[in-house]
């Protein structure tokens, strides 16, 4: 029964997350309306006059999500196609471990890399770029989620039966045509699920964006400006000396709850897509 108890710890964890986020957010929303929180365009919870509109943080997060997605999704998919359709076993045996290493590098290292390498590079080309900017963070988050996209897409593509591909080749199709019309459509649900999971990962990414993207809540679409993501805000507050119970303290739970709900929604969606549309082959 000790075994069963251990297994239930995962459920307790989930319940605890919901309880903690719920309780403190509830306190927060007694003082700030949900409407103001979700649709307000100013986020100034630490300075008077305080305002609690989460949109600037959300916009900052989305800027990172979109930017990193634009980098990681095509690259990851094409890598998976190359690995499964063209590459020799030798190439696979080189690239796969590299992907594992890239996936295992701690996020704080990526943050450092963005700040001290990618940002100077960008500023070399675009001198107007701010030191902290969304572009640099997007690139580095893109690199971070690339292995995930590549390896999940690779799994999805590899689960397409070889016989189906051979059917395509036997009709005189080129590898590109087989990929475009046979393999990718057959692996589509797995590929989409991998995109959703990667996006969810980018959404919750913390250290790299804290280091590279800045701490300026900024409702902007310009990736060269300093912004602040939801996660970076939470870090900022906890680095300061915020007393428990105050509204500043409660903001991190409200923002955390939003973060949790969105990422959980995406993960559930990804699982659902994978199960619902899984092609059944013999």
């Amino acid at each position: 029964m000790i075994l069963a108890l251990s297994a239930f710890i995962s459920i307790f964890t989930t319940l605890a997350i919901i309880a903690v986020l719920g309780k403190e957010s509830f306190g927060f929303f007694q003082q700030v309306s949900i409407w103001e929180f979700l649709f307000g365009t100013h986020w100034e919870p630490l300075l008077e006059p305080k305002s609690f509109g989460v949109l600037p943080l959300l916009a900052g997060t989305l800027l990172i999500v979109v930017g990193s997605g634009l980098i990681a999704i095509p690259t990851g998919l094409m890598t998976a196609v190359y690995l499964s359709e063209y590459a020799s076993e030798r190439t696979r045996s080189i690239i796969k471990p590299i992907m594992e290493v890239l996936a295992g590098v701690p996020t704080v290292v990526y943050g450092y890399f963005a700040l001290t390498f990618i940002t100077p590079m960008i500023r070399l080309i675009l001198p107007d770029t701010q030191i902290f900017n969304a572009l640099s963070a997007s690139i580095v988050v893109g690199i971070m989620i690339l292995p995930m996209v590549a390896s999940l897409c690779d799994d999805a593509i590899r689960s397409v039966p070889v016989s189906l591909r051979q059917g395509g080749y036997a009709l005189g199709a080129t590898p590109f045509e087989v990929t475009k019309n046979v393999t990718v459509p057959a692996a589509f649900s797995g590929i989409i699920a991998s995109f959703v999971l990667a996006v969810s990962r980018a959404f919750g990414e913390t250290m790299a964006v804290t280091l590279a993207a800045g701490a300026t809540p900024n409702l902007t679409l310009n990736p060269l400006e300093s912004i602040q993501t939801m996660t970076a805000y939470i870090v900022q507050v906890s680095l300061g000396d915020t007393p428990a119970g105050g509204i500043e303290y409660q903001t991190i739970f409200a923002v955390g709850a939003l973060l949790f709900v969105v990422t959980l929604g995406m993960n559930v969606a990804a699982n659902w897509i994978m199960n619902r549309y899984r092609e059944v082959y013999e």
Binding site: S163, L164, G167, G168, A170, N181, V182, P185, A186
Partner: peptide, 12 residues
């Protein structure tokens, strides 16, 4: 052209 041992129609 080629016909395979197991039928392998495309899922279309």
């Amino acid at each position: 052209g080629m016909v395979f041992q197991k039928p392998n129609p495309f899922p279309k």
